[in-house]
């Protein structure tokens, strides 16, 4: 069975990626889906470990609730959700880390560019195109 890595987050691009795979599943796409929920964070090293851990714990609980909803919806349209994971850190780096671990056949990500972000810095999709070895499905919003 084909293995998909579906990348979700708390922004529009997560919703875009979810919608695309949901529609494809309705049209007959079948496979095993690994859900990765990324909370983009850059916690400076001078924050105490206790505070950082308690922030992760709080965010993990919130994110798992959201992931459960996504999981149910995908299973309702015939996809098998094999695993879910929440990651904290840089969007592109966390995808690449998990890609090395699970070796998916296809990574599904959303793309929503903002004018200011476009001026300053690369979009994570550009980094994925450069560094990822898997097939990529970049869904435009």
């Amino acid at each position: 069975m084909a293995k998909f890595l579906l990348v979700l987050d708390d922004t529009e691009r997560g919703k875009i990626a979810f919608q695309k795979i949901y529609e494809l599943a309705k049209q007959g796409l079948r496979g095993e889906v690994f859900l990765l929920y990324i909370r983009e964070m850059e916690i400076p090293p001078f924050v105490s470990e206790e505070k950082e851990m308690s922030a992760y714990h709080r965010l993990m609980t919130q994110s798992i609730e959201k992931l459960e909803k996504y999981k149910k919806e995908l299973e309702n349209v015939g996809l098998v959700v094999s695993d879910v994971k929440v990651a904290f850190g840089s969007y592109a780096d966390r995808i690449l880390m998990l890609e090395r671990e699970i070796k998916p056949d296809l990574i599904v990500v959303g793309l929503k560019k903002r004018v200011v972000s476009r001026l300053f810095g690369k979009d994570p999709c550009e980094i994925l195109l450069k560094k990822s070895r898997a097939n990529l499905l970049i869904c435009r919003g």
């Binding site: 983009e40 400076p44 505070k51 950082e52 200011v116 972000s117 300053f120």
Partner: peptide, 19 residues
């Protein structure tokens, strides 16, 4: 600011500061 990093995503703020 350090407390807020535990709650807020950096991307938009970073772009605004750079602007």
């Amino acid at each position: 600011g350090a407390e807020l990093t535990l709650r807020v995503s950096p991307r938009i703020i970073r772009s605004a500061v750079m602007f």
